[in-house]
Write a protein that binds this DNA or RNA. Sequence first.
DNA 1: TTGACATGAAACTATAAGGTTTCATATTAA
DNA 2: TTAATATGAAACCTTATAGTTTCATGTCAA
Lengths: 118, 118
Amino acid sequence: MKDPHSAFRALADPTRRAILVQLLNGPHTIGEIAEGFAMTRPAVKKHLAVLEEGELIRVIPEGRKRLNQIAPAGLAPVIGWLATFDAFWDARLSTLKSVIEQEETHHDRPRKDRTRRD
Amino acid sequence: MKDPHSAFRALADPTRRAILVQLLNGPHTIGEIAEGFAMTRPAVKKHLAVLEEGELIRVIPEGRKRLNQIAPAGLAPVIGWLATFDAFWDARLSTLKSVIEQEETHHDRPRKDRTRRD
DNA sequence: TTGACATGAAACTATAAGGTTTCATATTAA
DNA sequence: TTAATATGAAACCTTATAGTTTCATGTCAA
């Protein structure tokens, strides 16, 4: 498993976590992202650089724009590290299961087949 | 759900993550913990303070010692925040399910006694 | 009671991190 | 081609963070 450090570091800042949440709505340019925060674009740019370093976002050039897209697979090393705490998993097992089952319920609406193919 | 910031911040440092892993073997004094790291006890003390602030450890006074004990429930806000990324859960669902089911299987029989002392 | 032990706290230092302003570069549209 | 747009990069400032050394405090054991 990839070293989770860069991802943990990226997640440590509230602005960066908020950016990730915002990107759940789809890719956004740095300009769009910066509008939502009380800081300048260069400051947001640095946060995006840290998120990219942690492989939590990808940057897709599109003309003169750069679309910043969330890369949720980058969270895998984080989850992987957390999973080493099986005392934690013991304690949270039922919560997790319900979260997942709720997810699966949402999946009942038509969408690309995913978990069906195991 | 509790704000995950103090926990995310605590997890951002590799020394603190290593301390948490070490504490999976049971409670340890600061002296014992400091032996494992190339830094002084006051430095380790500061890390422990951050972990305590994030509610990832508890400190149990015992005579002139202080036992630092992992508090895995403190990871719940972290998991809770990660759970908002249902794109992530989509991608990781089957993996997670297998992890959990494996955990459940293990529950039925005795296993390596680690954090089992209550 | 006294010395050794285990820890805590204060003051200080160096570097990293988050922010700014300013300027440069690439692309689109008129 | 040129002006506006979208972004990137450099230099700088301030504060937080991670570490140190030094000293103080509380507890155990002889």
